[in-house]
Design a binder for these strands. Structure first.
Lengths: 202, 202
DNA sequence: TGTCACTAAGCAAGCGCTTAGTCACCCCTC
DNA sequence: GAGGGGTGACTAAGCGCTTGCTTAGTGACA
C-alpha cells in the first residue's frame, strides 16, 4: 500500500513514515485542502499534535511526498533510457515504465500531479525543476528519434507532451479493481507511444 | 474568460452568472476546498452573503459548473460523431473537437475532471451518468472501427481510455501563453488519435 | 407601499498549529 | 542492581483565526 521506506531504523523514523503514509492516502482521496491534520494523525493512530513532533507543517508533508515521487519518476525515466541506445527501444521502455508506475503508484501520482498549487513558493520552485528535467528527458528522446529518422512526427514537443499525458492521466482513472494489471497497461501503452511518434521499426 | 451565458435576462440572472464565473476561476486555480465563499463573492464584487441569495451552497455551485460542462462535452462528442459515418473520419472529428475544447475551456475542464470528489452523493451520481455516456460514445466509436476493419487495436476499451486521457490531460497542462493555439492542438491530436487505434486510411 | 437584490454583522463549527505536561525508557552512579 | 537524572515521543487542551452559512435590516425601484 506504499512505496516509502528509506532511512528506517529508530522508532521515530517509523512513526514519521506512518504519518507520511497516512498523508498520502488522505491527500489522494480528498485533496490537500480537503484533508485535515486530524485526519492524518487519526489515520496514523495518533493525536493531532504528534504530527508536529515529526513534521514542520501539513505543507511540508505534501512537499516530502511530492519530492520523493518526482525523484523516483525521474530515476525511472533515466534508467529506462539508459538500457538501449535505439530511440524506438528507449521509447518502448520509457512508456512502459512510466505507465506501469503511474498505474501501480496511482495514489502517490495523483498527489504529485494534481496538488502542485498547494506547495509554497520555495517548494514549488524545487518541484518545478524536477518536472523540467523529466519533461526534458522525454523531449530529448523524441528529438533523437526524429533526428535519426526513426520517428515521423511534425512537432516533437507536442508529441512529448502527449506521451506524458498518457501516463499521467492514469493517476486520475486507474484503480485496483479494474480488469487491467499495471503490466498489461504498460504493454499496451508502449505500443501507443510507438504509434504516436509514427515510429518505423527497422 | 468564460463560456457560460445561457438563460440571461433579468438583473438577478446576470449576477447569478457573475458568481458562477467567479467560482469557475477560483475553483480552477485553487481547487474546491481551497476556495472560500468569500473568494467567490469578492471576485464577483459582492459581499459573502450575496452568494446565498442566488445559490443554495458552495457545493451547488460546483455541481452547476460540472453539470453544464459535462453536458457540453457530451453534445460536442455526439455532434462530431454525427458528421460522418466512417469511423476514421468520426475519430478525427471527435479527437479534434475534444482536444480543442479541453484547450480552450481548460479552466472549466480542470474543475470538471479533478473536483468530482467534492460533489455530494446525489450530484455525484448524476455526473457519473453523464461521464458514462461520454465514455460510451468513445468506446462505441473505437469498436465500430475495429469491427469494420478500419482500426487495428487489440484492446478497444483501453484505446478509448487512452484517447480520453489525451484530451482530458490538456486541462492540466494547457494555458493561454503557450505557443500552441487550440486549433493547432486539435489538428495534432486528431493525428495522434488515428495513430493510436492503428487506423489504415482507405 | 411592497418587493427584492443586496449588505453588515455575526454564529457555530472547524481549522492549523502551540503549549504545558505525562510517561516510558536509557544510561550512569554507588 | 537499586536509585536517580535526563531524554524524547507523545497527548489533552486550547489559542487565534477562518470557514460555510444565517439573520436582520437597508435602499432602490415598481
Amino acid at each position: 500500500m506504499s512505496d516509502a521506506s528509506p532511512a528506517a531504523g529508530s522508532r521515530a523514523d517509523a512513526t514519521r513514515e506512518r504519518l507520511l503514509a497516512a498523508a498520502i492516502e488522505a491527500f489522494a482521496a480528498k485533496g490537500f485542502h480537503g484533508t485535515t491534520t486530524r485526519d492524518i494523525a487519526g489515520a496514523a493512530g495518533m493525536s493531532p499534535a504528534a504530527l508536529y513532533v515529526h513534521h514542520r507543517s501539513k505543507e511540508e508533508l505534501l512537499f516530502l511526498i511530492s519530492q520523493r515521487g518526482h525523484e523516483r519518476t525521474l530515476e525511472l525515466v533515466r534508467t529506462a533510457r539508459a538500457a538501449d541506445p535505439d530511440p524506438i527501444e528507449q521509447l518502448r521502455a520509457v512508456a512502459a515504465a512510466f505507465a506501469e508506475h503511474h498505474a501501480r503508484a496511482h495514489t502517490t501520482a495523483r498527489i504529485i500531479n494534481y496538488e502542485l498549487a498547494a506547495l509554497d513558493d520555495e517548494h514549488s520552485a524545487e518541484i518545478a525543476e524536477l518536472r523540467h528535467q523529466i519533461d526534458g528527458e522525454l523531449r530529448d528522446l523524441v528529438r533523437a528519434g526524429v533526428a535519426d529518422g526513426s520517428f515521423d512526427c511534425p512537432d516533437p514537443r507536442l508529441a512529448a507532451a502527449a506521451l506524458l499525458s498518457l501516463g499521467i492521466d492514469l493517476a486520475r482513472w486507474y484503480h485496483e479493481d479494474l480488469v487491467w494489471t499495471p503490466e498489461a497497461i504498460a504493454a499496451a501503452y508502449a505500443e501507443f507511444a510507438v504509434r504516436i511518434v509514427g515510429a518505423t521499426s527497422n
